[in-house]
Amino acid sequence: MQERELVVVGGGPAGMAAALAAREHGVQDVLLLERDRHLGGILNQCVHAGFGLVHFKEALTGPEYAGRFIRSMRGTPGIEVKTGCFVAELKPGKVLTCLSTGEVSTIRTRALVMATGCRERTREMIQIPGTRPAGVFSAGLAQKMMNIEGLLPGREVVVIGSGDIGLIMARRLSLEGVEVKAVVEIQPHAVGLKRNVVQCLEDFGIPLHLSHRVLWIHGKDRVEAVDIAQVDDSGNEIAGTRFSLRCDTVLVSVGLIPENELIEMAGVEVDRHTNEPVSSDLNYTSVPGLFVCGNAYRVYDIVDSVTRDSFLAGQQAAEYLAENGGVR
């Protein structure tokens, strides 16, 4: 079993900021674990611009924003980075079991920062009636397919939910020659940023149907069509408003859920409904010395805020170490 001072789980913007700040505040031994081959987290697939206006005073793309921190990490001695390393288990006492190609290791750490990000809410979680054909993707999966793998998910798309990821993908796919037929939003206003409605939908003439719901997904093996209708304030169908759109792909963009199953394994208190850690103060959890930052703490609107709050998490971890047996 390895004994470490500080382990940061997750090499996206939250984890990198926490690692850098912890180092800056005196922690000598910082180990950052990232399960993907590269650092950058979800930003690697966010190829669009608009990140960093607050933090860098520039409009950067996701990879550019991540790249600034990746370069800082490389230039900071004392931060050990292990990519391709997956934390499979977390036990009480801050004991981690990690898997990488060729190796299983256990690590006990004195302080732990969890920066494990979010997962998307999927079709299964919101109970859309109809069949279960191929071609229904969460917007983030479609984004990964398109931007990381170079795979075109379909040719005629309907987007369920006007969250930012769905809006961004509406534009992304339109640029790739895909016909995005509509974005369907159950609320009377768009959920994502106004500017995304402009530059992702209005720019491309994609209709946004507010106060509408997808009532049925058709298709035996692959999506064939969706039925849509207007709904009232309670979400019930308004008679006479139903129409069908032929499509081969449905993107679902209906929210994010913090990933905290690892800390739950270790007995840390997690709110049953929001999946956020039960917390008295920013980044704190019910276990001293175990911090959660970034989207795993709560779903953030802009990455600049993630950076700001995750720098704090690194500092908090350093303070915890100093107060509890000294920073080596």
Partner: peptide, 18 residues
């Protein structure tokens, strides 16, 4: 404009561009 471009022999499949 932001998009991706195919890569060959590199550590990623697609290179993000702007």
């Amino acid at each position: 404009l932001t998009s991706t471009v195919a890569a060959q022999g590199l550590s990623v499949r697609m290179v993000p561009v702007r």
